[in-house]
């Protein structure tokens, strides 16, 4: 039983990170129906910036928590700017173009960011400095660390703040209106270009925090870390119903837990025929099964055909 609790805790932690990244995908998709393939790379850049800041500040004798906060505080604006620049340069000129064209520019941006990071931070994985000493707490025979608690709390806080913003503020209403119909929203006096840019910026800011969290959790930062994470997060967004905010949160958490439980139990279930190296297969099979039976995702609405 304690293995079960342990895997659930690990899964929730990972799932929370997936959910935060997935929100970035889903917000952009909800508004302009674009799969922002470069979103995972923004997460990576966030982690890399934080890495450099922590390495620079670590010998200064500041309290560890302050160091991490400053690092995150540096990563967020950089990533936000990146999100804005990306939208402005690579996606805005292609609005109204065939659907696959922005997908290719997204791939281009992703290649650029990855190799830019490789140029600056090198090819080898960087050991992310563990400035905060990990402390474990006992929960029903399983262990939860302070890092995991922080990840859960920060993710929940960010998701709550985002939900409040989207559903309770005037700007949120503008976002939802743009998502429903950009033309009509424009006629109602909403500056849709600004709303779209802001969506990218918000998503990128959250991605930066996710990057710091995940690098801290695994203790590694690498220029290729963004792609697999982005892939999982994108799966999570689709699982929940892409374009749907609560769906992305649910999808992220679900994917994290399924993955952790799958990795923990697949060996026992199959008499050690399959090991935990099939962890990723598990996530994808769940995704495919869900989509076969609910093609619109868990919380997605069945939308009519759009020409």
């Amino acid at each position: 039983m304690d293995i079960f609790i342990q895997q659930v805790i690990n899964g929730l932690t990972l799932g929370a990170v997936y959910a935060v990244v997935a929100l970035g995908y889903t917000m952009v998709y909800g508004i302009i129906q674009l799969i922002n393939f470069a979103h995972g790379e923004v997460v990576m850049i966030g982690a890399m910036i934080a890495f450099s800041v922590i390495v620079a500040l670590a010998p200064g004798g500041l309290p560890p928590l302050v160091v991490v906060l400053i690092a995150t505080g540096c990563a967020i604006p950089v990533c936000m700017f990146l999100g804005y620049a990306m939208e402005r340069v690579a996606y805005r000129p292609l609005r109204g173009a065939p659907r696959l064209a922005p997908l290719i520019t997204a791939i281009g941006v992703s290649i650029i960011l990855q190799h830019f990071a490789m140029m600056i931070w090198g090819r080898s994985p960087l050991p992310f400095p563990q400035v905060i000493t990990t402390v474990g707490y006992d929960v029903g025979g399983a262990t939860i660390t302070n890092v995991q608690i922080v990840i859960l709390v920060v993710s929940t806080a960010m998701m709550t703040a985002l939900a409040l913003m989207v559903y309770r503020t005037k700007f949120g209403a503008a976002m939802r209106a743009t998502a429903q119909n950009p033309q009509i929203a424009g006629l109602m006096g909403i500056d849709t270009d600004r709303v779209i840019a802001a969506t990218f910026v918000i998503g990128a800011g959250m991605a930066a925090v996710a990057g710091v969290m995940v690098a801290n959790y695994y203790g590694i930062a690498h220029y290729t870390m963004g792609a697999p994470l982005g892939l999982k997060a994108f799966c999570a967004a689709v699982l929940g119903g892409i374009g749907n905010l609560p769906g992305a949160m649910l999808g992220g958490i679900l994917l994290g837990v399924v993955e952790a439980l799958g990795a923990g139990y697949i060996g026992d279930l199959t008499g050690n025929w399959f090991g935990s190296n099939y962890q990723d297969v598990f996530a994808f099979i769940v995704l495919i099964l869900v989509l076969v039976f609910r093609p619109q995702g868990l919380l997605g609405e069945r939308v009519g055909e759009r020409a």
């Binding site: 340069v89 690579a90 000129p93 292609l94 173009a97 065939p98 064209a101 922005p102 290719i104 520019t105 791939i107 281009g108 941006v109 992703s110 290649i111 650029i112 990855q114 190799h115 830019f116 490789m118 140029m119």
Partner: peptide, 25 residues
């Protein structure tokens, strides 16, 4: 100055973006 692999891929990435912007079809 810079690894050729990096420049190669950077040029490649920029080319993808540029071509799609200039010729979306």
């Amino acid at each position: 100055l810079v690894e050729p692999e990096v420049i190669r891929m950077l040029i490649f990435g920029f080319a993808l973006v540029l071509i799609m912007i200039l010729r979306p079809g």
